[in-house]
Amino acid sequence: MYDNLTLVAMARKSMDWIAKRQEVLAQNIANSDTPAYLPSDLKPLDFSTVLHQTAAPAINPVITDPRHITPAGLNDPNVVLVQKKTYESSPDGNAVILEEQMAKMGDSKGMYDQVTALFQKNVALLRTAITGR
């Protein structure tokens, strides 16, 4: 019902993105001592992409042949990229910097706070509209 509200759809999109990012960052932190491990991160979420995706949902290819398969994550906006450029790497080839990862995680947390606050505000507005109080 509320999916038609742009703000709800956008909130869901960015919450999905943050949750996915949290998973990727957790992976980096857990592997902070694994030899030859390169950290990854999600492709940054920018406003125009989200707006486009929300306003006009992605076009899905039609299956015209029973042998066609749909690739996993075809329209998944959350693209995981391996971080090729890193600040430094240890002698065993590991390039995870805990501080960097923690800072990213703090960023994500802040964004999540922001999104949930906005969502709550929006729900409060709706409530005001419904009850008139």
Binding site: I18, A19, Q22, L25, A26, I29, A30, S32, D33, L98, Q101, M102, M105, S108, K109, Y112
Partner: peptide
Amino acid sequence: SYDANMNVITTSRGM
């Protein structure tokens, strides 16, 4: 490293 992982859990749970 253990602390960092613990922080991940705390943040995820908070979210």
